[in-house]
Design a protein around this nucleic acid. Structure first.
Length: 232
DNA sequence: GACCAGGCACATC
DNA sequence: GATGTGCATGGT
């Protein structure tokens, strides 16, 4: 997604439904104030640690890093791989995540003199390409860093987003990451605050109601028990 | 005990 | 290019 899709010129039926989805979620839940982190480096750490892990467990690991006074780039590099992995244990796949976090820190250290702000100041296309070049950073993690740490206008697609948009028949169930992202970005203004809020709201409602196997009929988005939703 | 969680890399077909 | 698999803890 080097060149974001331009906004489609005229009102589009799917756009109205997407906007309605956003409005309904925003009325129901209000502002989510994401990303929950104190520093930009902590956003990056959280983005890596929450890969295939519940956020609660990523938080535990972040707290352990903080307790070890290791919540900054240099401190992460100063830890031995074994020690870093031990601190990350609660987030699951901890050896893997220790490698990934270290790879990120090593990259910033090598390419940007340890200055995270310099990496984050790159033009969006370059920033995204560079992030994707770091082992352990795929599209979702790269976009989460670009949006939540760098404040860039890019929409993050996660499992909830796909599931919810597919169940509302806004995208096909088999739509891949780039397609879902292009769908949202072609229908909404490229506003970081909006992309932030929409993604956070989708995760919020998804955690409660949009499980892989649907099991609740009282969702505010009115899924039926097969996980399908009426047209918005 | 099974399923799930704010994915990614790599092997294999 | 599509699909399968390892990574691994902690909550429900």
């Amino acid at each position: 997604m080097l060149a974001p899709p331009p906004l489609l010129p005229r009102p589009h039926p799917l756009r109205r439904r997407l906007v309605r989805l956003y409005d309904r979620l925003h009325r129901r839940y209000g502002p989510q104030r994401w990303w929950p982190a104190r520093t930009r480096f902590e956003v990056v750490v959280g983005a890596i640690l929450t890969q295939n892990a519940a956020w609660r467990n990523a938080e535990r690991a972040i707290a352990r890093l903080r307790g070890a006074d290791a919540l900054d780039l240099r401190a992460v590099l100063a830890l031995t791989p074994t020690r870093l992995a031990a601190l990350l244990r609660p987030s699951g796949t901890f050896r893997l995540k220790a490698r990934r976090l270290r790879a990120f820190a090593a990259h910033v250290s090598r390419r940007h003199g340890g200055r995270l702000d310099r990496l984050l100041a790159l033009p969006l296309g370059e920033l995204r390409a560079e992030l994707l070049g770091i082992p352990g950073i795929g599209p979702e993690t790269a976009d989460a860093i670009a949006l939540y740490a760098a404040g860039r206008p890019i929409f993050v697609v996660d499992a909830y987003t796909r599931r919810i948009l597919a169940r509302h028949r806004l995208v096909r169930p088999d739509a891949d990451y780039a397609l879902v992202q292009a769908f949202v970005m072609s229908h909404l203004p490229h506003d970081p605050a909006l992309f932030n809020e929409l993604h956070a709201l989708l995760v919020r409602v998804g955690k409660e109601y949009c499980r892989p196997r649907p099991r609740c009929a009282v969702c505010p988005l009115r899924y039926d028990l097969r996980g399908r939703a009426p047209r918005l």
